[in-house]
Amino acid sequence: MSGIGRVLVAVYGVLALAAVGRSFVQIASKFEEAPLAYSLSALAAVVYVLATVALIRSGRGWYRVAWATIVFEFTGVIVIGTLSIVDPALFPHDTVWSWFGRGYLFIPLVLPLLGMWWLAKHRPGQVALRTDAA
């Protein structure tokens, strides 16, 4: 991972921090109000952390982890984002994905797309070749 990909990792790191922080507050102070929404928040937070780590690490295994976590996030933001608009009663409490991540400047919606674009352009084989050449 080099060049502008570093910036992608940094933004992922910030989002992971935001998701972990928010999830920590929700679970520590009002978990019983909405166990489902807050468990989902915690799961999303863990996946953001995992995605950040996977983007930093190299190798085929981490490349797969990066794809899996980023696809999971994209699915999450699309499904939960749609549900939160179609049937707001389902998610009375905000999650990182409600309204397609509106509370986070829509970063949760845009970031997985950038992540997938990055991964598609940088397969492990190509990276290895480039490192050999250099």
């Binding site: 080099s2 060049g3 502008i4 570093r6 910036v7 940094a10």
Partner: peptide, 18 residues
Amino acid sequence: FWALLERSRWSTVVLGVA
């Protein structure tokens, strides 16, 4: 820490993001 470790233009962008 990142900027000291890797001295590239993108580290400067990362400083800005932070």
